[in-house]
Design a protein around this nucleic acid. Structure first.
Lengths: 187, 187
DNA sequence: GTCTATACAGCGATAGAC
DNA sequence: GTCTATCGCTGTATAGAC
C-alpha cells in the first residue's frame, strides 16, 4: 500500500474513532508509519487529507447501503434488511458522527459528502416505500420521504443510545420497534 | 452570578457547541471572563468542571422532558408532544452529542449522566406506551420498550440528519414519519 | 478567591536537506 | 518522495504572590 493510501486509511480510522477535532496529524502519521514530509507532500494539510478520507468513507457507505437496498425482496424486506444489516454499533456511524464535529459542519467542503450520503440513502428508502405503497404492502397514507427520514434517523439515533449505554441492545430495540410499526398488516 | 457558576455555564455552552474534545480550559475562561486561578480553585481540572456541566445539563433536560411526558393528554398525545416539542434542532442535542466524544465515552463518570438521562426518558416513554396499550389506543402487539427506543432514536437521529443538511426539515420529516406510523387507527 | 508566571507537551504547518 | 529541524501557538496544569 502506498504512503498516500496509508495516510488516507489511517485518517479514516481516526476520524471514525475520534472525529475531526480529536484527530491530529501527528496521530495520523504514527498510525500510517509516515513522516511529516510525506503528508504535506501528498496533501495540503489536515483538512485536505480529511476530505479525501471522508469522501472515501462516504463512497463505501453508499455502496454498502446500495448492496442491501437494491437487493432482492419485497419493499418491506429491503427496508428491514437495511435496518438489520450487520453493524459495529458501538463504534458509531463513520459518516453520521461527523455531523457532531463543529469543524466539519463549519466547512461546506467537508460537510458535502456527509450530506450527500445521507440524502442518497434517504432518497433510495423513500422510493422503496413508494414502491411498497403501489404494491399495497404499505398503507397509502404513508409518505415515502417521511418514513425514509424516520428509518435513517432511527439508525443514527440508535448509535447514540447504544454508545450512551455501552451496549448495542438499545440500537436493536429501536430497530425492532420501528419495524413493528412498519410491518405490513397480516392479511 | 458567581465565578464558579459562570465557569459551569460557559462550559455547558461550549460542550454543546464543540464537544468535550473541542473545548479547552482557555476557551472556557475567556467566555466566563475568569482567570486560570479561579478555575483550578473551584475545580480539579477540565474533567471535573465538565462533569459539573454535564450533570446540570442532564438534570435540565430531564426536567424539560418530564414537563412534556407528565403533562396532560392521551398517551399518543404525550408521545407526540415529546416528539414535537420545540428544539434548537441545528444545535443538536446537548446530551446526545456527547456520545460521539471519545473522552466522554471513555470515562464512566462523564458517561453516567448521559446514560441515565436517555434511560430515564426511554423508561418514561415505555410506560406511556404501555398505558396506551391498556387503553386500547395502541395495538397490544407493540412493545413499550422498543417503541420508546425508536422514539428517542428518531429524535437523536433527526439531529444528525438536520445538521448534515444544514436544515431542520429532515428532523421534522422523521418525526412526522414516526408519528404517522404510531397514530391510533381512526376508529 | 483571584491573579500572573511558568512549565512542557502537543498542534498544525513550513523549510530545506537528501 | 521522504526525512529532520524548526516555528509560533495552544492545551492543560502547577506555583506562588496578593
Amino acid at each position: 500500500m502506498s504512503t498516500s493510501e496509508r495516510l488516507i486509511e489511517s485518517t479514516r480510522e481516526l476520524l471514525w474513532e475520534r472525529g475531526y477535532v480529536g484527530t491530529s496529524p501527528k496521530a495520523i502519521l504514527e498510525r500510517a508509519d509516515a513522516g511529516q514530509g510525506s503528508m504535506y507532500h501528498h496533501f495540503r494539510g489536515k483538512p485536505d487529507l480529511a476530505l479525501a478520507a471522508i469522501r472515501r468513507t462516504a463512497e463505501e457507505m453508499r455502496a454498502t447501503a446500495a448492496g442491501v437496498l437494491d437487493g432482492p425482496g419485497t419493499p418491506y424486506e429491503r427496508v428491514e434488511a437495511y435496518l438489520r444489516r450487520e453493524r459495529d454499533v458501538l463504534r458509531g456511524c463513520p459518516i453520521g458522527r461527523l455531523t457532531m464535529d463543529p469543524d466539519v459542519i463549519g466547512s461546506d467542503d467537508l460537510r458535502a459528502p456527509v450530506e450527500e450520503t445521507l440524502d442518497w440513502i434517504r432518497g433510495r428508502l423513500a422510493a422503496i416505500v413508494e414502491e411498497g405503497k403501489e404494491q399495497g404492502q404499505f398503507v397509502p397514507s404513508l409518505d415515502g420521504e417521511e418514513i425514509a427520514a424516520a428509518v435513517v434517523a432511527t439508525v443514527q439515533g440508535g448509535y447514540v443510545l447504544a454508545r450512551a449505554s455501552g451496549s448495542p441492545a438499545s440500537f436493536d430495540a429501536g430497530v425492532r420497534g420501528l419495524l413493528s410499526l412498519l410491518a405490513p398488516r397480516p392479511a
